[in-house]
Design a protein around this nucleic acid. Structure first.
Length: 502
RNA sequence: GGUCCUGUGGCCGAGUGGCUAGGCAAAGCUCUGCAAAAGCUUCUACAGCGGUUCGAACCCGCUCGGGACCUCCA
């Protein structure tokens, strides 16, 4: 049962076969650290984190490269040749690198809270200026770029003409035909530097006020937007690697340009499998700066945003993302997030209970055969669903069905020995694998060295005593006031009491 | 204008030519000192209109609605 992933390049699901098993090279476009990450950013990083985890679980040795764009590029090509990062730095009266550091720290903090594993390499654009310049030199030498006024542009027309013959036209990834592109009515100055409107910058001449600038054979300037990913992916993953991921909005022009640049330099399509996650929407509209509808991750975690009815735990966000398929849009709403919060709580409670049980399950004989088979089927499908283009939504759905069974055993609605001990063992092991290691879901409970637990047990004991002498005023006071503090007590069937911290 | 995606029950979301996920919400029941939690049960949907088919939410066509990309973007 091989892993199949949807390849944007071929527009179909394909079996994943690494170029050089067991090694897998994976490149994912990281953020521009000129601002804080928002909910939309969480999606690719959670999605590809799950893929990373799953590949490793399957025995692959994965090198996961996720870049940090800290050099910025001009905001609107040809019009305002200004480095995005230095522009904002002036506004905030910060050194550009101070700004970069600040937002990098915030980004790392958010990634950690979302329980995304750090990538193997997190290269920065500013740390690879030399590699980028070298690559541009090669492209010029091959005749696919030209210098104009201290800037260097990629000759899209020529590339398209030559490489169409080799079956790799410009637009192969996004399905665009060069001539059908929209004729921008907008007046772009600097357009006259380019031979053709679809040409894109590899290197930009820096105007005097531009803070971030580097020496190059073409004068002082800064790299164009697309070249960093080509340079860094080539450097760390080679001329041809396995997976290239990112948001759907990067498919054109970013990834298209990457393909063109890398192909000219390395004479190879850089990546075999191109994977794109879809957007997170809000009221049906893509979340993005230009739409003015972003909710930053820090706001989500704290609840400090007019659109938010409450704070949402990072795990709730992660779970929210995992409940849908990565190639579909996912619509944000408080209602949806609240549903995820409750659902996750239910799932994790069942999970945590079953995983620490011993002595559940009976001998093969006397087992409820139908139920036993059902459980095995549900568990067995985890892999099947993951292999079907990472269908985490279905994996999660099965987990809920299993939760019902687990809770029934816990509440003794289903006999302790209804499942065979073998099946229970498999259930425990597979749940742990998928919940924690692959989906990366963790317990939300705060780590407090057990002190809080000690205090709560004391209160639980006092309440128990009160209940036994029918002093319900006292017992309800404890229960209700703890509830007001966000600690929910639960009376179990066997007379025990457990608690849950909201 | 070009390219493409999409419309599923109160809400979020899977899915596939026939077996009709899952979660949240709601209602009833069980349990409980009362609750909560948990369990059980109920709620059965696929924008509209045609067509293909023994059979379509799933395939095709049209209509209507929503969205993305073509510019920085996860």
């Amino acid at each position: 049962m091989p892993l199949k992933v949807y390849n944007s390049l071929t527009r179909q699901k394909e079996e994943f076969v690494p170029i050089n098993a067991p090694y897998v090279g994976m490149y994912v476009c990281g953020p521009t650290v000129s601002g804080e990450s928002h909910l939309g950013h969480a999606r690719p990083y959670v999605t590809f984190d799950v893929l990373y985890r799953y590949l490793m679980q399957n025995g692959y040795k994965v090198r996961y490269v996720r870049n940090l764009t800290d050099a910025g590029h001009f905001e609107e090509e040809g019009r305002e040749a200004e480095d995005k990062i230095s522009k904002k730095a002036i506004l905030e009266k910060l050194e550009p690198m101070e700004l970069v550091q600040k937002y990098t720290n915030l980004y790392h903090w958010a990634m950690t809270r979302l329980n995304n594993l750090p990538p193997s390499i997190e290269p920065t654009a500013t740390g690879h200026i030399i590699e980028q310049i070298e690559m541009i030199k090669t492209i010029i030498a091959d005749g696919y770029a030209y210098v104009s006024n201290g800037s260097v542009y990629f000759d899209v027309e020529k590339y398209n003409t030559d490489y169409s013959k080799k079956g790799q036209p410009y637009g192969i990834l996004s399905g665009r035909v060069l001539d059908d592109q929209l004729d921008t009515t907008r007046e772009l100055d600097g357009q006259d530097e380019k031979k053709d409107k679809s040409d894109f910058a590899l290197w930009k001449n820096a105007p005097p006020e531009h803070i971030m600038r580097w020496q190059s054979p073409w004068g002082e300037g800064f790299p164009g937007w697309h070249i960093e990913c080509s340079a860094m992916s080539t450097k760390y993953l080679g001329e041809e690697f396995d997976i290239h991921g990112g948001g759907m909005d990067l498919q054109f022009p970013h990834h298209e340009c990457e393909i063109a640049q890398s192909t000219v330099c390395n004479h190879k399509m850089p990546a075999r499998y191109w994977m794109h996650n879809n957007m997170i929407t809000i009221n049906g509209r893509k979340m993005g700066k230009s739409y003015n509808n972003v909710i930053k991750l820090s706001e989500l975690f704290s609840g400090a945003h007019p659109l938010l009815l409450q704070a949402y735990h990072p795990m709730t966000i992660r779970f929210f993302i995992l409940q849908s398929h990565y190639r579909g849009t996912l619509d944000f709403s408080n209602e949806a997030l609240q549903a995820s919060e409750k659902a996750l709580k239910r799932l994790m409670e069942a999970y945590e209970w079953i995983v620490i049980q011993s002595g559940v399950g009976g001998l093969e004989s006397g087992v409820d055969k139908a139920l036993d088979e059902k459980v095995l089927k549900l568990v067995g499908e985890f892999e099947e669903f993951m292999n079907d283009d990472l269908n985490t939504a279905k994996v999660v759905a099965n987990m809920f069905e299993l939760s019902s069974v687990i809770n029934s055993i816990k509440d003794k609605h289903i006999a302790n020995n209804a499942l065979s001990s073998t099946t229970v063992g498999i259930l425990q092991q597979q749940l742990k694998l998928y919940v924690e290691d692959i989906l990366g879901l963790t317990n939300e409970r705060a780590n407090d060295d057990g002190k809080l637990d000690g205090v709560l047990q004391l209160l639980i004991d006092i309440r128990k005593e009160a209940k036994s002498r029918k002093d319900f005023v006292t017992s309800d006071k404890i229960r209700n006031e703890l509830a007001a503090l966000g600690v929910q007590l639960k009376d179990e069937k066997d007379g025990g009491v457990s608690y849950m911290i909201a």
